[in-house]
Design a protein around this nucleic acid. Structure first.
Lengths: 347, 347
DNA sequence: ACTTGGCACTCAGCTGTGTCGAGTGCCAGA
DNA sequence: TCTGGCACTCGACACAGCTGAGTGCCAAGT
């Protein structure tokens, strides 16, 4: 029994099932694809594929549908990434080119992904674990408080209001803050977020006694900002597409929506997929139960890294849909969008 | 025929239908409620209610269900607002008390609303049309650009990077910005966002020629920030609850989710409800087709204003669910949450 | 050693039939 | 104005039979 043909049969089953949404039998299979053999032969192959766990039948005397394992093999060895048409590429580019700031880029990206894949889209905000401090600004507010603003490399801004009532220095608060600002920027400016924290503790310890209280308060707030900046966020769009993508998800739709709302769950998933891809920006696909989350047992996730350059992968973006999705097309769309977003961020 | 009893019948129908999700007939009605008359009498009343358009029957020989008009009468004249238990109040309070900043308050609020009403929750970010400028900060970045940060009364922060390359003044950029910052804050500090724009144009016109170019650039960016601050945002949660709230919404679920993702639609809806409530913080209810949006024809929306005080209604929050929701309980929950959020914001 | 045609078998889904019962509308009488 | 009675409607449900797509297996062919 030819091993090649068995794989061809699996590919045909996946493609047919994805387009028809119905279990596919041996007869229809030879009709729609040029397999050059009779249904009976196909049946033998199907039986073998079923034994190995690549396909299954929902009930006796029905056609076969791929299992998670079957999709996995299809994605890994059988499916190419369908190239996108020039028109589609242009559409992506023009849609993203109008973006103004980072928030706008992310917002447009997630909508675009949802629209062109007709599935739910997820975009992780640029992860700042590799980002650096660009500037720290201290603003006196109302005499007794100060606003601490942290600006990072990637254009993200975090702010905290810190109460410096207790810090009763001799000089006026504004003056103290100006001096402190200079010192803080000198200490942490340009350094990575994770390192900045250590630099801060050094700075507090080396502060003159008069400034110590204020410095400590500010450093604490700044530490909060650092944490918040490192904390990752995701945005989603296109949940309505999940409803339309066939009634088979309807049963688990509730838990899928729940999972999507729990950004923590999504972040963990995306993190895992980053590891799958070896920290590179490569495409990563999670199929069905491979998502270690009950609510997502019937969904697949396709993500790609993106960033400011090939070596600067900041975060991931992708789509989420039923396991029986059109992987080649979806993967192509995700990869294309990731590339264009990266190109924009690189500027 | 007693008019009072007919209203009582309508109320009974609404309550029964809401709890059972099934068309309610004359017999079950007299069994479950003490109406003191026979089913035949109820039938006459029902026929009259149907003539007037308050109830309808899905098909002949089925019980009656309320129409939008019926729910409207129920909400306006028949339903009280069910008081919340002390335990529930406590739960609300403790859940919201842990919040740190404005984002956190909004995030917690929307989750809380979704959880206790088991429906989809919507929270409009505090509308800043009445908010004032607290502080403007200008930060030189990289020598050729400046970061403009706008901080408002209500704790919202907007920032823009502005390119001041063209502004080649004699003095270094940083010095120019320090001076400009002082002047900008003097000009717009404390004034309402809408007014700040005029003050800015005055400021640019009165700038010394040397500073004019920089001032104009900064004013433009600040204008952007003002617009962005006035631009309203909403957050939603609990969409998964829509799936669980009975299969009858399932048909229109797709369009409901689409509507929820289109924040523009939601904002318009919320704006209309603010007008319904006469700009006060009162509860407002939109039932079914009263939401002038096709996707929401089978849903009702219950919102309440909230803010920093009885006269300071900044925005609205509420829930969205199927028209056959438990209005008294939902209204109570929305009102209670709105009050606690207002209390927190007042601090 | 594969491949193929034939054949019996399975079973989900559809259709038609009959029954049941909740619910209605109407009417005459209290 | 209310009530009991009565005929009627019609969706829901259960049951049965049919159909057809699809399978597994086997013997024969290449």
């Amino acid at each position: 029994m030819s091993d090649d043909r068995r794989l061809a049969v699996l590919r045909a089953i996946v493609e047919d099932y994805v387009s028809s949404h119905e279990p596919v039998g041996s007869k229809t299979l030879v009709e729609r694809h040029q397999l050059g053999v009779s249904p009976a032969t196909i049946r033998n192959d199907m039986a073998a594929l079923e034994d190995e766990g690549y396909i299954t039948q929902p009930h006796t005397s029905a056609g076969r549908i791929p299992t998670d394992k079957g999709y996995r093999l299809f994605v890994d060895r059988l499916a190419g990434v369908k190239p996108m048409s020039a028109a589609e590429k242009r559409a992506i580019q023009t849609f993203l080119d109008g973006a103004t700031d980072l928030d706008d880029v992310v917002d447009r990206t997630v909508r675009l992904l949802a629209q062109i894949t007709r599935q739910a889209a997820v975009v992780q905000y640029p992860s700042l674990s590799r980002a650096a401090v660009r500037h720290v600004e201290l603003v006196p507010v109302g005499g007794r408080s100060a606003l601490v603003v942290l600006i990072t490399d990637s254009g993200r801004v975090e702010q905290r209001v810190v109460d410096v009532r207790s810090a009763t220095g001799a000089e006026p608060l504004a003056t103290a803050l100006v001096a402190l600002r200079t010192r803080v920027n000198a200490a942490v400016g340009g350094s990575r977020l994770a390192r900045a924290r250590e630099a801060l503790t050094d700075l507090v310890q080396q502060s003159p006694p008069a400034d110590l209280a204020v410095a400590a308060e500010v450093a604490a707030a700044l530490g909060d900002c650092l944490t918040a900046s490192l904390e990752e966020r995701v945005v989603i769009a296109g949940t309505a597409n999940l409803v339309k993508s066939g009634a088979d998800l309807a049963a688990s739709l509730g838990s899928v929506l729940e999972a999507l709302e729990e950004h923590v769950v999504l972040l963990r998933l995306v993190q895992e997929m980053t590891e799958d891809a070896g920290d590179r920006g490569a495409l990563s696909v999670r199929i069905g139960a491979e998502n270690l989350h009950l609510g997502l047992a019937e969904t697949s996730v396709v993500t790609s890294g993106y960033g400011t350059g090939p070596d600067q992968v900041l975060a991931r973006l992708g789509v989420l849909g039923p396991t029986r999705m059109d992987y080649p097309t979806t993967m192509a769309a995700v990869r294309a969008v990731a590339r264009y977003v990266s190109r924009i961020l690189a500027q």
